Simulated assay, not measured.
Amino acid sequence: MTSQLFSHDVQHTLDIAGIFVFALSGGLLAVRKNLDIFGIAMLAEATGLGGGVLRDLIIGAVPPAAFTDIGYFITPLAAAVVVFFLHPEVERINWTVQSLDALGLGLFAVTGTAKAHDYGLGAVASVALGVATAVGGGVIRDVLANEVPSLLRWDREIYAVPALAAAILVAVLIAAHALGPVTGTGAALVAFALRMLALRYGWRAPRAWHRIGSRTSEE
């Protein structure tokens, strides 16, 4: 088995931390959309747990871990409470939140890919589910908030690409029988570095070659 890259306690702590940071972003979007406390809690839950639940349902790991470990379920609610009372302060430390989000992105891409492989999926499918684990919650968040998902918008810094890079690295490491705590952490840090560089330098994915038209509505 490769999905348990770290000891149970370490893995659980990292999962909780990643879920909390993802949930903060969901709660903040709910505040910007002027939603009530229930809406804040719903977007926090969807963002924090959505990717992992989607992965577990696809690979048949049911019931999903989010519903068998009360800590996973409560963590987004704690983030929602923080955002409800302290959203101006959380907005002020947005760079820190984005940095932690980038760490969570890499971690979830790595563990999601490894878990999908453990359930018998091939390299390509495992990579796809690794990316889904990392970005799925954000997509669900944006859809619920009636937004075009951030990872589909050309005017946002690349998000799925760092997760894809980490997932591919994990698939290569698995094929080489070299995936472990050190190499898995290295793959997660690759995603983190790519995401932070994208934020720093405004890296975006290319649009269609020889695209015709430049109206604002098209951009």
Rank of each mutant, 00 (worst) to 15 (best):
residue 148 V to G: 12
residue 139 V to K: 12
residue 38 F to G: 09
residue 207 R to F: 09
residue 140 I to A: 10
residue 22 F to S: 05
residue 193 A to T: 14
residue 105 L to E: 05
residue 212 I to R: 13
residue 198 A to E: 06
residue 50 G to I: 03
residue 179 L to E: 04
residue 5 L to A: 02
residue 202 G to V: 12
residue 85 F to L: 13
residue 7 S to W: 04
residue 29 L to H: 10
residue 101 D to I: 11
residue 113 T to S: 08
residue 55 R to Y: 02
residue 42 M to G: 07
residue 181 P to G: 04
residue 93 I to F: 12
residue 145 A to E: 06
residue 95 W to H: 15
residue 144 L to I: 10
residue 140 I to R: 06
residue 172 V to R: 01
residue 21 V to Q: 07
residue 219 E to C: 09
residue 141 R to A: 04
residue 125 A to P: 02
residue 5 L to Y: 03
residue 72 Y to Q: 08
residue 129 L to M: 15
residue 95 W to F: 14
residue 24 L to I: 15
residue 60 G to K: 09
residue 193 A to I: 12
residue 80 A to R: 06
residue 32 R to L: 05
residue 67 F to C: 08
residue 80 A to W: 04
residue 133 T to S: 13
residue 217 S to C: 03
residue 91 E to S: 14
residue 61 A to W: 00
residue 156 R to S: 09
residue 195 R to G: 06
residue 112 G to E: 04
residue 20 F to R: 09
residue 217 S to F: 00
residue 82 V to M: 14
residue 209 W to P: 15
residue 110 V to G: 03
residue 127 V to M: 10
residue 158 I to V: 15
residue 217 S to T: 13
residue 65 A to L: 12
residue 44 A to V: 11
residue 192 F to C: 10
residue 139 V to S: 11
residue 125 A to V: 02
residue 4 Q to Y: 10
residue 48 G to T: 06
residue 148 V to T: 15
residue 179 L to C: 09
residue 14 L to N: 07
residue 93 I to R: 13
residue 51 G to K: 02
residue 57 L to K: 08
residue 209 W to M: 15
residue 61 A to I: 03
residue 55 R to M: 03
residue 189 L to T: 11
residue 219 E to Q: 14
residue 134 A to K: 06
residue 99 S to R: 02
residue 27 G to E: 10
residue 114 A to Q: 03
residue 174 I to L: 13
residue 105 L to G: 09
residue 216 T to K: 14
residue 185 T to V: 01
residue 105 L to N: 07
residue 200 R to S: 15
residue 118 D to T: 05
residue 195 R to W: 01
residue 54 L to F: 06
residue 202 G to D: 03
residue 19 I to W: 00
residue 139 V to Q: 12
residue 65 A to W: 00
residue 70 I to T: 14
residue 192 F to G: 08
residue 154 W to N: 14
residue 204 R to V: 15
residue 75 T to V: 12
residue 176 A to W: 06
residue 126 S to Y: 02
residue 74 I to C: 11
residue 147 E to N: 13
residue 188 A to E: 00
residue 73 F to A: 15
residue 12 H to M: 08
residue 172 V to Y: 07
residue 134 A to S: 05
residue 117 H to P: 04
residue 182 V to E: 01
residue 107 L to Y: 13
residue 112 G to A: 08
residue 143 V to N: 11
residue 145 A to L: 08
residue 130 G to A: 12
residue 176 A to N: 11
residue 196 M to C: 12
residue 37 I to Y: 15
residue 212 I to A: 13
residue 125 A to K: 02
residue 191 A to P: 07
residue 93 I to G: 10
residue 17 A to V: 10
residue 108 F to V: 00
residue 72 Y to A: 04
residue 44 A to W: 04
residue 202 G to C: 05
